[in-house]
């Protein structure tokens, strides 16, 4: 079973690459925010999976829970910025 978990974890990491692409190259800030949000939700599952890989899941649930809370706070703060400061800047990655 642990091999299966490992492969699921690797699959999730592979999928994270897609979100990471959006986070790194997203044309606007909000696209990045979507990417990071998606990374966050995958991370929660990954934390649990790693817990099963270590066979100490009871210790890892706490971290995942804290993560689910705090990811929300960060995303909320970042999007709240736009409620008060208008305007989306043009930007380009790495030039």
């Amino acid at each position: 079973m642990s091999t299966f978990f490992l492969s699921v974890a690797l699959g999730l990491l592979f999928l994270m690459l897609f979100s990471m692409y959006r986070a790194l190259f997203g044309p606007t800030i909000l696209d990045r925010l979507i990417g990071v949000n998606a990374i966050g939700s995958k991370t929660v599952i990954l934390l649990l999976l790693i817990g099963f890989l270590y066979e100490r899941i009871d210790m890892f649930v706490d971290i995942a829970l804290a993560y689910a809370f705090l990811n929300f706070v960060a995303v909320l703060a970042a999007s709240r910025y736009f409620h008060k400061r208008k305007g989306l800047y043009e930007e380009s990655f790495m030039d």
């Binding site: 909000l30 925010l33 979507i34 949000n37 929300f72 995303v75 909320l76 999007s79 709240r80 910025y81 736009f82 409620h83 208008k86 305007g87 989306l88």
Partner: peptide, 13 residues
């Protein structure tokens, strides 16, 4: 969070 991001996008124009 999704709603908040959409709202931000709308407000950002």
């Amino acid at each position: 969070a999704t709603h908040s991001i959409v709202d931000a996008g709308m407000r950002a124009g």
